[in-house]
């Protein structure tokens, strides 16, 4: 697990983003007040919550995949600085809505409802949830941490898999082709 930045720094970053958004945003302080210290102190708690989040966003993704939530906490990507806050926000919303203090113990439908809440909340929160969903999808479908692995769920093999020509094309291309306008592929 990567080194977590300090809570103070996370709040500062979050505040900077919030400051740049529309005045209609819920004040960052309201959200920030619901950020328990335990999410900075317990990386395993954050990992559990984020795994429950990603498997809700991508049903069918293996919950025990070692790379499943890596992008969300990878210090090379900006989201990492919000990971603990984000996990706390998922937890807070889940408890408020369903009375369950552990996000990962919610049913898949309940978790999806929590994520929808975040995606429909104020502009700052929407941006954070939207970024988390998309980053999780990019990392999972593209297989960004293992060049050769790809993503079996969508049939993406990743790199370094050679295919014979017979697998790349069809044996009877003339059946597909339309009339050509040019003799050599260049328009006049």
């Amino acid at each position: 697990m990567q080194d977590h930045i300090s809570r103070r720094l996370a709040l500062k970053h979050f505040g900077l983003i919030a400051a740049g958004l529309a005045a209609a945003c819920t004040p960052a302080r309201v959200l920030v007040n619901a950020y328990p210290q335990t999410f900075d102190d317990d990386p395993e708690l954050v990992d559990r919550v984020l795994r429950a989040f990603v498997t809700t966003v991508i049903p069918g993704a293996a919950a025990d995949d070692p790379d499943l939530v890596r992008a969300l906490t990878d210090p090379d990507y900006p989201f990492a600085q919000f990971a603990a806050f984000f996990a706390a926000d998922l937890t807070r919303r889940g408890e408020r809505r369903f009375g369950e203090p552990a996000f990962e113990r919610l049913t898949p439908d309940q978790r999806a409802a929590v994520i929808r809440d975040g995606l429909e909340a104020d502009a700052t929160t929407r941006k954070m949830y939207n970024g988390a969903v998309t980053l999780a999808q990019v990392a999972f479908y593209a297989g960004i941490y293992d060049a050769q692995r790809g993503c079996a769920l969508i049939g993406f093999e990743g790199g370094y898999h050679w295919h014979p020509l017979s697998e790349i094309t069809y044996p009877d291309p003339a059946l597909f082709l339309a009339a050509a306008l040019t003799p050599d592929g260049n328009a006049a």
Partner: peptide, 28 residues
């Protein structure tokens, strides 16, 4: 590109265009 090397997606694109009577050329 030789006819026998056109990837499947290119052939399917050509097929869709041909269905509508449109032209398609092999690219360079």
């Amino acid at each position: 590109i030789p006819v026998e090397e056109i990837p499947k997606t290119g052939l399917v694109f050509a097929h869709l265009m041909r269905n509508l009577g449109y032209s398609v050329d092999r690219c360079r």
